[in-house]
Design a binder for these strands. Structure first.
Lengths: 132, 132
DNA sequence: CTTAATTCCTACTGGAATACTAGGAATTAT
DNA sequence: ATAATTCCTAGTATTCCAGTAGGAATTAAG
């Protein structure tokens, strides 16, 4: 029952982006947040594919939020980097599991999704970023 | 973001136990639910340690619920077989992560826990068990 | 028009967690 | 006595995910 590291890192990275309207390079975020730059690349490619961020290539390039911070929710982030939220790996051939899914897991999923949607980047107080 | 297989199997097994006041053997549950009997043994030993079920050893032995179905929640089951629910593997040395945990993850955890506590075995309509 | 800094793309590797198996001892109803 | 069961301890297999790697493409700046 875990939110992935990808979601955590992505959230932290997007919070950094939300502090600037100019492109920020992966290396800067990586340094500031102590997250592997290579790993952040993977994450950013997904965030970009989901149109949460845009990029500028080349020297002085970097990433910018594609939306207002208030329009990016934890759910958007999780969906982007981890795909659809699934609370259980049910065996869809098993009627007992189908039953449990419908009765229990699906409602939990819906509750969680609604809650994650309700938390946007502005709902998280700005972290003191010291320098960037 | 997954509920474990252990929790799913345990829930299904306890639902079976809730249909009888006589001991039911692992083999019967295993056959009915198509769950490995050996794996169920592991799960039942945890459920027993948490006093959700009691056992009778020997020939004609088996397991019985130790409480009324209405007094066993999905949370109890999850806690028993998987230990405390933790929504994120945060690095406790990292202040950024501590911050996110406090702001976001902890509230999600609490929401989930409350919800899982609110679902007891009677809240799940009885599955048609055909024979047992 | 070269250089340095960056994103972009595709794939691979390592390790941890978890699902599942195995052997045999202890217990007990019949 | 026997057969059926739980109990205990340990092992194996598999899957998932975090993290790494190399190098191509792009571009600002001098």
């Amino acid at each position: 029952m875990k939110l992935s590291t990808k979601t955590r890192y992505a959230t932290r990275a997007l919070l950094v982006l939300s502090t600037s309207s100019n492109p920020i390079a992966i290396k800067d975020i990586s340094d500031d947040q102590s997250i592997s730059a290579r790993y952040l690349e993977n994450i950013f490619s997904k965030l970009k594919a989901s149109k949460l961020i845009t990029s500028s290539i080349g020297n002085n390039g970097g990433y910018i939020l594609a939306k207002k911070p208030s329009e990016i929710s934890i759910y958007d982030i999780s969906l982007s980097v981890d795909g659809p939220l699934q609370i259980a790996n049910i065996n869809t051939n098993n009627k007992h599991e189908q039953y449990l899914y419908k009765q229990i897991y699906n409602p939990i999923e819906e509750l969680l999704i609604e809650y994650l949607k309700s938390i946007d980047l502005t709902a998280i107080e700005t972290i003191d970023l010291e320098s960037i």
